[in-house]
Amino acid sequence: MQNNVTNSVEPTAWSEVAPAQSEFRRVIRVFFSRKIAVVGLVLIVLLVITAIFAPWLAPYPPNDIDMANTLAKPSGDHWLGTDNLGRDVLSRIIYGARTSLIIAVGATAMSVVLGEILGLIAAYFGGIVFQIIMRFIDALMAVPMLLVALIMASLLGGGVKNVILALGVGMLSVHARMMCAQALSVKQNDYILAARSMGMGDMRMMIQEIVPNAFPALVVVATVGLGAVILAEAGLSFLGVGVMPPYPAWGKMISDGYKYILSNPALAFSPGIAIMLVVFGFNMMGDGLRDALDPRLRGVV
């Protein structure tokens, strides 16, 4: 590895073959050469910064009710106006970023870990194991994700923890299917046969041969999945079974604000635009990662 670093620092003539450089550097380079991916990354970084530094960034506490100043139009005091309880919309969006991010990361982490382990085991061992796991996943998939989440949320009640659980289970099937399909296709390759012929064990085979080759697609799906979770959480909150008021959540803000969409459009539109930007950001980042993680593009860009 030290060799790598010195190699890539050394100036080389154009005619020479590109020096072997570390995988990580290459991924970074390809990723940053895609403008749209960088836009996505910037949006996501902004989201993360906003979520972490919400108390410092927000001009008002998110739950401060100001009954004298309800449904105010955007102004110097309240950049995006106030809602029907006089709470500052901008502050609530900033705090809402926190809710969205926690839920997105939590639910995605849960569904990715569980789903991909299930999918990998199903695809690798095949036969009866495959049938049992995948039929269970199919059953889960037959019910729309939002409905699964809706049922779970209404059984367990709202709140961040339960929303994570509900969406985590809801997204499980997506990741399990993806992993299963990827692993099945990777399994067809001769290098798996080669690995088996050299006597590689099941565990090493899955972790070293199959997962790395399934990885790019999984990263893309997981990244896009983060966006989908944010959208689904907004949906749940909009339907009133998501995050409990007065906790700020974008979906809830839209559902509260759409009644005033003609008189005070900023109320519903601004959280809507926030959702849109974040989902867009995750999708673009996913695309960029897909390009960057593809080893066939090594040295092309």
């Binding site: 046969l193 080669a194 050299m198 080759n213 080893p295």
Partner: peptide, 29 residues
């Protein structure tokens, strides 16, 4: 026993370095 396969493209894991590929049997055993 060793095995050499027909397709030199498909029989090498595209995500491993040449070092890992050639050394893998030794690591496995």
């Amino acid at each position: 026993m060793g095995a050499i396969f027909q397709d030199p493209y498909g029989s090498l894991n595209p995500r491993q370095s040449a070092r890992t590929i050639a050394g893998m049997p030794l690591i496995v055993h």
